[in-house]
Amino acid sequence: MVGIKTADELNKKFLREGMWPTIFCNGCGHGVVLEYTFWALEELGLDMDKVIFSSGIGCSSRLPGYINADGLHTTHGRAIAFATGIKAADPDFHVIVFTGDGDCAGIGGNHFIHAARRNIDMTVIMINNFIYGMTGGQLAPTAPLGSIATTAPYGNIEHPFDICNLACALGANYVARWGVSHPYQPIKSIKEGIQKKGFSLLEFLAPCPTAYGRRNKLGDIKKHWAWYDNNTILKEDLEKIMKYGTEQEKEQVKEKIPLGVFQDIQKPGFFEAYEKLVDRLKEKESKPKGAKK
């Protein structure tokens, strides 16, 4: 492989220098996801004029502003709707959507469902920090049971939203969930997601020490990052333990969040099907009327 080997060269290629350093808090996971995306784009060697980023509102949606490429900063929850428009206008573009958990699962839930159902060719990178961080720590639909937020001061009693399960059920082509503390698997996953024709969802569990960690007494940055290591488990390990493990082991892993690639299939995307439809109709049109087979 030729090209960039160090982070310094990577920054020069992909970063919009004047915007840096970021507005993110100390210990936030969003910058890490941005860096993984850079590495994945660098590995793929895509032309940055052919990549468009789209985002809604929230901490995660600041990310396209830091990238030296075209980007849209759109209304709350509608990032996927705008991305669908870009893709419809010119299917040659690679569309990458940065969205948060409140943006994608909460407010833009229906847009997400129908984009996944139609299998539109885009990569959705959902950065899940369990809370609406930018607006002051309101409860997000993905927050685990019992977590404390400004709108749930005595603990959350609503069951959390598993967005990866939803995407699998809707038949998205690529669904994966990763944490931010292990670099190699997420970079590979983002690469596969961008290459995949059809809808791909990548969920990242990003720490939010300011809004989530502080309220939930998860400690400082170090302890908060360690919480994500202790409370997640690889999907393959979970399956093995559920099959062969003892009762005690099963009890231990019950509360943990599974990580890994959940779905990797190859279904035709919406625009492929649409092209076929247009071709079929054109063929029909070119035949003279009344002619029989």
Binding site: A7, F24, G31, E43
Partner: peptide
């Protein structure tokens, strides 16, 4: 790779040879 602010760059030292295993220089 893990720095949230992309502030760190690692350069392999050419001069100093250490008896270490060959490391992964590309992220994948």
């Amino acid at each position: 790779l893990i720095c949230p602010d992309l502030a760190i760059t690692v350069f392999p030292d050419e001069k100093e040879k250490k008896p270490v295993k060959k490391t992964l220089l590309t992220p994948v």
